[in-house]
Simulated assay, not measured.
Amino acid sequence: MDPNVPHRSSPRWRPTSRLLVWAAILLGSGVANAVVEVMDAQRRGEVLALWEPMTWELSSAGMILLTLPLLWWGCQRWPLHADTWKRRLPLYLLASVGWSLLHVAGMMLLRHLAYASVGEHYVDGSAWPTRLLYEYLKDVRAFFSFVALEHFFSWFGRRRQGEAHLLAAPDDAPPEEPVERPQRFLVRKLGRDFLVATADIEYAQAAGNYMNLHVRGHEYPLRSTMAALEAQLDPARFVRIHRSYVLNLGFLVSIEPLDSGEARAHLKDGGTLPCSRRQLPVLRAALGQGPAPAEPAATPTAT
């Protein structure tokens, strides 16, 4: 088991499942398009073997499937929000050009290999600049369709599972509790609001521009950085155990040292979290099992 991956089931739609769904969609569309190509050729009085349009369609669909995880990663790494889309739109336009070039180059390679495997030679009558422009005009629509769908499902997923926020201060009164050390978070879920006690948060996990708060088997994304969330949590209760995880000590059962010098934190619900070599002394000190790691000495400056 990889110690850097938490051992627990996840309610999210896994990338493998998404790829299988898109594979079925693209395969079905490709087969239908290939049959239409053959029927159109027959109406023109031409003979076109089914394997040829199948090669054209499936080579394109295959490259799309191979590059989809990269596209999804980019959407998670640079999400589009109301306050970022104008700044990041040029980045997405540039990414669409790169995605199209990768798609076309891979597609052409697969076609040449497929034709060579049956003793044929694939011939594309178009000049490369014309071909690339033609393919890009098609690919840019597909690219932004995938981007829009990815962001829509990410948005809907956050709404369905609930998104956490700090409690806002009323317009005509001070906040109910200090914002710098909140005791509760407000969760909005499909139009309903409810409160989650900070003490009930088992751990928080970094995920791009979000921190996912794990509470009783549920996961609530919070728009925050790791440093900002750490500053808002009680250091006597919450300890950073990894670059991506902050753990509530009240839910820790045991620490399992690993041969690599890292450790695995076992939680009350049976799940596990990784504890890095650097943070292990911090965790032990928080549990009273050892001294806190010393701060590095300052380097004297020459006078």
Rank of each mutant, 00 (worst) to 15 (best):
H7G: 02
H7Y: 14
S10F: 15
R12A: 11
R12C: 04
R12T: 07
W13D: 08
S17P: 00
R18Q: 14
L19C: 13
L20F: 09
L26C: 12
G28L: 03
S29L: 15
N33S: 14
A34S: 15
E37D: 13
V38N: 06
V38P: 03
D40H: 09
D40R: 15
A41N: 10
Q42S: 08
R43G: 14
R44P: 03
G45T: 11
E46S: 11
A49Q: 11
L50H: 15
W51A: 09
W56Q: 08
L58Y: 01
L58A: 05
S60C: 10
M63K: 05
M63P: 01
I64G: 00
L65G: 08
L66F: 12
L70R: 07
L70I: 09
W72E: 01
W72M: 00
W72F: 03
W73N: 08
Q76W: 12
D83W: 07
D83T: 06
W85T: 03
K86E: 06
R87H: 12
R88E: 11
L94E: 09
L102I: 11
L102F: 14
G106H: 11
M108T: 14
L109H: 11
A114S: 15
A116I: 10
H121C: 12
V123P: 11
S126Y: 15
P129E: 13
P129V: 15
R131I: 03
R131F: 13
L132N: 09
L133R: 05
V140Y: 02
S145C: 11
A148F: 07
L149W: 12
S154F: 12
W155N: 00
W155R: 02
F156V: 05
R158C: 08
R158W: 14
R159F: 07
E163G: 08
E163M: 10
H165R: 12
L167A: 10
A169R: 10
D171C: 00
P174V: 03
V179W: 06
R181S: 13
Q183P: 01
Q183M: 06
F185W: 13
K189R: 14
K189N: 10
L190T: 12
G191P: 01
R192S: 05
F194I: 02
F194Q: 09
A197L: 07
T198F: 04
A204W: 00
Q205G: 02
N209I: 11
L213S: 02
V215G: 04
Y220L: 05
L222E: 01
R223E: 02
S224E: 05
M226V: 07
A227W: 02
A227S: 10
L233N: 12
V239Y: 06
R243C: 04
V246F: 06
N248M: 08
G250F: 11
G250W: 13
L252M: 05
V253R: 15
S260Y: 02
E262A: 15
E262W: 13
H266I: 01
L267D: 07
K268N: 13
D269K: 02
D269M: 07
G270S: 12
L273T: 01
L273W: 03
L273D: 00
P274C: 01
S276M: 04
R277T: 06
R277S: 04
R278P: 04
L280P: 01
L283M: 04
R284H: 14
A285T: 03
A292V: 11
A292H: 15
A292C: 10
E295P: 13
P296E: 10
A298R: 15
T301P: 02
T303E: 10
